[in-house]
Simulated scan of single mutants.
Amino acid sequence: MNNRFLKTVTDLGWFDAVLYGVARICRNSPLRLHRYYFVAQRVASTPSRAGWGRAIRVRAVSVLADIPWGYPRPRDVLAERFRQGGHSLAAWRGDELAGFLWYQFGAYREDEVRVRYCLASPHSAWDYDVFVQPHLRLGPTFAKLWEEAHFRLHARGVRWTCSRISAFNPDSLRSHARLGAVRLGSATSVTLGRWQCMFATQAPYFHVSFSAGSIPQLRFDTDALEHAPRQESLCHPGRP
């Protein structure tokens, strides 16, 4: 057992480490494996680092034509996000795109696998695809994006923002844990061409589809978090 595998087990836990190994083996084949954790984070009403990162400017991006050259996502994916009603914020440092994040209300169809995430509460939103340029990840870009997003969400009466995190991304898991995110569930999908099989911790629990039109829906109700006596944090990744 080499040191790299031991570190993976430490970061992810045994269960997710094994699935991560399978996913890596499958990278050169038509078979794909994705595993996600679903989390919710309470929306803040005030910025946590007021005055920090004044060189970063955050602006809304509302149409595809406003997407700058060099944006690291395919145009067809971005067009589909806007078609679904997606909103985006872009952070700039001078003329450089420093990072961005996306959010939307009601429901969101996943980019990577066939699944639709539905939000039962009007006081919730879905955030996704938070990106910061690699050379700026130790700076204030991430904090400034979240600060602006929380201001906008709070103004619309949103109390919780939900998202999915790859179970194979320990840095993101730790980052969300530091922000106080609580876990809502998990799902694992295996795809081969048009065929897809999904296992999830909430209804429908198990779903098999053979065409692009067969899309499972996972429903999340953040209103239940308002009265929950104890919420599971992200401190213990790797559980099935």
Rank of each mutant, 00 (worst) to 15 (best):
A187P: 03
W126A: 00
L6I: 05
F168S: 14
G85A: 03
A228L: 12
G139N: 04
R219D: 09
Y108M: 01
E226S: 09
N2E: 12
L78W: 06
S62K: 12
P122C: 08
S214K: 11
G106N: 08
Q133E: 07
V132E: 04
R83F: 05
S124M: 02
G85K: 02
W92A: 04
L64K: 07
R194H: 10
E110D: 13
D111L: 12
A177F: 06
L19S: 11
Q84T: 01
G213N: 01
A120C: 02
S211R: 15
W146N: 11
F210V: 14
A143L: 00
P240R: 11
L97E: 15
F220V: 00
L218Y: 00
D95L: 12
L64I: 15
H150K: 00
A40H: 05
R109Q: 09
H135M: 07
G106M: 01
F151P: 04
Y108R: 06
I25V: 10
R27F: 12
L97Q: 09
A125F: 11
L19I: 04
S88L: 06
S186I: 05
E96R: 15
F220W: 15
R183T: 00
V63F: 07
A55C: 14
S211C: 09
P229H: 05
G157I: 06
P170G: 06
E148K: 10
S175G: 07
A187S: 08
D171E: 14
M1T: 14
T161R: 11
W14M: 13
T201H: 01
Q217S: 14
C197N: 09
L145T: 03
G51I: 10
R109M: 07
